[in-house]
C-alpha cells in the first residue's frame, strides 16, 4: 500500500511538472503567473546562425524548430531551482564552477547576479531562476544565491552566463522527442520541452535577445 501511495505521488508530481512544461510552451494556461516575460513579438522567430538557412516550421503543428535541431542534436542538462533546463551544445560556450565568486555591480537589475571574467570577457551572470520561474516561485529565492549559482553555463561567446545549481548529463535528442514551441508561444526563450526527461530546452538566441531587452 505504501508503495502504491508513493507511486501515486510520484505520478502526480510528474503529471504536474508535465502540465507546467506544457503551460510554459503555450503561455496561455500557465498554472502560475510568469515572472518575467520576454518582449512580445508579432511572430515567433526561429533562431538562426548568421548566414544559415532559415529554420523550418512544421506545417501540421506550427511548431518552430531552430536550425540546430533540424537533425539529431546534443544538449547539456542543468538544474535551476529544481527545474531541469537543457542548452543545445551548438549554442554552449562553456561550463565553469563558480569558485571565485561574482563581482556585483552597483545599481544592477535583480535579474543579474554580477559579472565574472571568462576567457577575457566580462560575462554577465543571470539569475536564471529569477528569469525562468513564475513570480510566486521566484519570490522566495532571496536566500541561497550561492547554491543556485554554484555553476555557470556560459553562452553567446561568453557575453552571458546562466547561474545554475547543478550540471547534469549531455543528452542526445531527436527533433521528434521535443515538443516544440509553437509560433503562438509567448516564451520565445523556450525552444521546447522534453517530457520524457521533464526538462525545458532553451532557445539561446531568443534568450540572449530577451536578456538584452531587459537591459534596455
Amino acid at each position: 500500500m505504501k508503495q502504491d501511495t508513493r507511486h501515486d505521488t510520484l505520478l502526480e508530481q510528474q503529471l504536474a511538472l508535465g502540465a507546467y512544461l506544457d503551460a510554459l510552451l503555450t503561455g496561455s494556461e500557465a498554472p502560475v503567473e510568469q515572472g518575467v516575460e520576454p518582449p512580445e513579438k508579432p511572430q515567433a522567430r526561429v533562431s538562426a546562425a548568421p548566414g544559415s538557412e532559415p529554420a523550418q516550421a512544421s506545417d501540421t503543428t506550427g511548431s518552430v524548430i531552430p536550425v540546430w535541431a533540424e537533425t539529431r542534436f546534443q544538449a547539456l542538462l542543468f538544474e535551476v531551482a529544481g527545474l531541469t533546463l537543457a542548452v543545445p551544445l551548438a549554442k554552449l560556450k562553456g561550463v565553469v564552477p563558480n569558485t571565485q565568486g561574482l563581482s556585483e555591480m552597483p545599481g544592477h537589475s535583480p535579474l543579474f547576479l554580477g559579472v565574472t571574467p571568462y576567457q577575457g570577457v566580462q560575462s554577465k551572470v543571470v539569475d536564471t531562476a529569477r528569469f525562468v520561474l513564475p513570480k510566486d516561485r521566484a519570490a522566495p529565492l532571496e536566500t541561497g544565491i550561492a547554491e543556485r549559482s554554484a555553476h555557470l553555463v556560459v553562452i553567446d561567446e561568453g557575453r552571458w552566463a546562466l547561474a545554475c545549481s547543478k550540471i547534469g548529463d549531455v543528452i542526445e535528442l531527436e527533433p521528434a522527442q521535443v515538443k516544440w514551441r509553437t509560433a503562438a508561444g509567448k516564451r520565445l526563450w523556450l525552444a521546447g520541452t522534453v517530457i520524457e526527461l521533464m526538462c525545458a530546452l532553451l532557445d539561446i538566441d531568443e534568450l540572449t535577445q530577451a536578456l538584452s531587452h531587459e537591459m534596455a
Binding site: 544592477h108 535579474l111 537591459m215
Partner: peptide
C-alpha cells in the same frame, strides 16, 4: 566599458 546589467540611470557613475 561598464557591463550593462540593467542598471538604473542613477548608476551612470560607473
Amino acid at each position: 566599458s561598464a557591463p550593462n546589467v540593467g542598471s538604473d540611470e542613477s548608476a551612470n557613475y560607473i
